[in-house]
C-alpha cells in the first residue's frame, strides 16, 4: 500500500480493520477519505469525532486529529471543538444507535443551532457492536436479537428528523453507490452549517444473517432495486415507494445563519454594549 490515498490517510499498522467481512462502514470510510482528498483539504485542520459503536471505531484508522468519545456524545464534544476554533473542519462519525438513540438530543440541538459540523451516520439498522439488537432505524417487523418475533418499534427516518430539527444540508446515500456517496460527502463538507449524511449500510454478520438476507454480496445487490433517487421518487406513489430507500439531497439551503457566525455577532453586540 504505497503512494495511494489509503497510505496517505489511513494508519497502516492498525489495518486490517476490526469490522466483519462485508461491513459497510469501510465503504463509508473510503468515501470520506476520497472526498477529503479530492477537495484537497488541509488534514491538519480536520478533526474527526466519534462516539461508541462499530461506526465510531472508524477514527482508529485515521491519520487526523481524532477524538473517540462516549456513546452518543460525539456531537457535544464536536460542538466544543468547533466553538473553540471555528477554523477547524469538524467531522462527526456516528451510527444509528449512537446519534439517533442515546445521542438523539445532541443531534437535534446541533441541527437547531445549525453549527458547522458534518455528521456522517453509518446507518446499518442495528446495534452491531453489542451483537445485533434493534435500533431506532430498524425497519418494522425485521428480526434482531431483541426483536425475535419481528421489530414492533416504529423507526426514525433520520433525514426527516434532521430536516425538521433545522439542519441546512441533509442527504442520504447508500454503500451501493460509493461514488455518489463521496460526492454527497464533498457537498456536506463544503456546506457552511450543520450537514447530515445518512449512509445506508449493511451489517451482513448480524442484521443480514438474522433476516436471512444472504451474504455480503447478495445484500449489496439487494440495494439495486430498493434505491430510488429523490427526483425519481417525486414521480412515484406512496404504494410504489413502499420498501424503497430514497437517496439524494433533501435539504441544501443557506437561508439560516451558521452558529459560529451568530456567536461572532453576539461578541460584537457584547463589545458594543460595553462601549455604551
Amino acid at each position: 500500500m504505497k503512494n495511494n490515498i489509503y497510505d496517505k490517510y489511513l494508519v497502516e499498522e492498525k489495518m486490517p480493520t476490526m469490522w466483519c467481512p462485508g461491513c459497510g462502514n469501510g465503504i463509508v470510510l473510503q468515501s470520506i477519505i476520497r472526498a477529503i482528498d479530492e477537495m484537497d483539504l488541509d488534514p491538519e485542520k480536520i478533526v474527526f469525532v466519534s462516539g461508541i459503536g462499530c461506526s465510531s471505531r472508524a477514527v482508529n484508522y485515521l491519520k487526523f486529529d481524532c477524538m473517540h468519545t462516549n456513546h452518543g456524545r460525539a456531537i457535544a464534544f464536536a460542538t466544543g471543538i468547533k466553538m473553540a476554533n471555528p477554523e477547524l473542519k469538524v467531522i462527526v462519525l456516528t451510527g444509528d444507535g449512537d446519534c439517533a438513540s442515546i445521542g438523539g438530543n445532541h443531534l437535534i440541538h446541533a441541527c437547531r443551532r445549525n453549527i458547522d459540523l458534518t455528521v456522517i451516520c453509518m446507518n446499518n439498522s442495528n446495534y452491531g457492536m453489542t451483537g445485533g439488537q434493534y435500533s431506532p432505524t430498524t425497519p418494522l417487523n425485521s428480526f434482531t436479537k431483541t426483536s425475535v418475533y419481528g421489530s414492533y418499534e416504529p423507526p426514525f427516518d433520520l433525514c426527516d428528523l434532521t430536516k425538521s430539527a433545522g439542519a441546512t444540508y441533509v442527504a442520504r446515500c447508500a454503500t451501493y453507490l460509493p461514488v455518489q456517496m463521496k460526492d454527497i460527502i464533498k457537498k456536506a463538507l463544503n456546506h457552511h452549517g450543520l450537514s447530515f449524511v445518512d449512509c445506508a449500510s449493511d451489517c451482513p454478520s448480524l442484521y443480514g444473517r438474522l433476516n436471512r438476507l444472504g451474504d455480503a454480496g447478495e445484500m449489496m445487490l439487494r440495494w439495486k432495486d430498493r434505491l430510488v433517487s429523490v427526483t425519481q421518487s417525486q414521480k412515484m406513489s406512496e404504494e410504489e415507494l413502499k420498501d424503497k430507500v430514497i437517496w439524494g439531497e433533501f435539504v441544501n439551503k443557506s437561508d439560516r445563519m451558521e452558529y459560529t457566525d451568530i456567536y461572532k455577532e453576539n461578541i460584537r453586540r457584547a463589545k458594543e454594549a460595553a462601549h455604551e
Binding site: K2, N4, L10, M15, G24, G26, I27, S31, V179
Partner: peptide
C-alpha cells in the same frame, strides 16, 4: 475498488504495480 470495505483493491499497471 470503490465498494471494497477493506481497502484491499487498487488499480495498477499491466504488471500489477500500483
Amino acid at each position: 475498488e470503490f465498494h471494497c470495505p477493506d481497502f484491499a483493491i487498487l488499480m495498477g499497471d499491466d504488471d500489477g504495480q500500483l
